[in-house]
Amino acid sequence: MKTEHHEIVSKVPEVTLIFWIIKIFATTVGETAGDLVSMAMNIGYLISSIIFAVIFLTVVSLQINARTFNVFIYWATIIATTTLGTTIADFTDRSLGIGYAGGSTLLLVLLMLSLFIWRNSVGSVSIQQIRSPKAEMFYWITILFSQTLGTALGDWVADTEGLGYATSALLFSAVLISIAIVYFTTAVSHTVLFWAAFIFTRPLGAVVGDFLDKPVAEGGLALSHLGITSLLLTLMLILIFSFKQRAARLSH
Rank of each mutant, 00 (worst) to 15 (best):
V37E: 03
V207R: 08
T68A: 15
V37M: 06
G44H: 03
N70W: 05
S132V: 07
A187G: 08
F19D: 01
Q63F: 04
R119K: 13
A187C: 05
Q245A: 04
W75L: 07
G97S: 07
A248E: 14
F69C: 06
A80L: 04
D93T: 11
A152F: 05
I240R: 01
S10D: 03
L111M: 12
L170W: 02
G227H: 06
T229M: 12
L171G: 02
T148S: 09
S230D: 03
V157H: 03
E4A: 12
K214R: 13
I88Q: 06
W156H: 10
K2V: 11
K244Y: 01
S132Q: 02
W156V: 03
F172V: 00
A101L: 14
N120R: 14
S242V: 05
V207T: 12
A158N: 02
S10L: 03
I181P: 00
S48Q: 08
T186A: 08
K134H: 03
G99K: 07
A197W: 07
I43W: 15
F241Q: 13
S146L: 09
L212M: 14
W195P: 08
W156Q: 10
S251F: 11
P133F: 00
T234D: 05
T32N: 00
L115F: 15
A26K: 00
H6A: 13
F194T: 11
T82E: 00
T87F: 02
I238S: 02
L212D: 04
L163E: 07
V71L: 08
L57F: 15
F184Y: 13
L144G: 05
I143S: 07
S38V: 08
F116A: 14
I88S: 13
A180C: 08
A187L: 06
K244G: 09
L212V: 13
F69H: 02
N70E: 09
D93P: 09
V157R: 00
L57I: 14
S251G: 11
T58G: 09
V157P: 10
H225A: 06
I240A: 06
T105D: 05
F194G: 05
I130G: 02
Y74K: 03
V188G: 04
D210E: 12
N42K: 15
L163Q: 09
A40Y: 14
T148I: 02
A206K: 15
S121G: 07
F91I: 03
T160A: 13
T83Q: 11
S124A: 11
D159Q: 13
D159F: 15
A247R: 02
L96Y: 10
A33N: 06
I143R: 00
I238R: 01
M236H: 00
D90K: 10
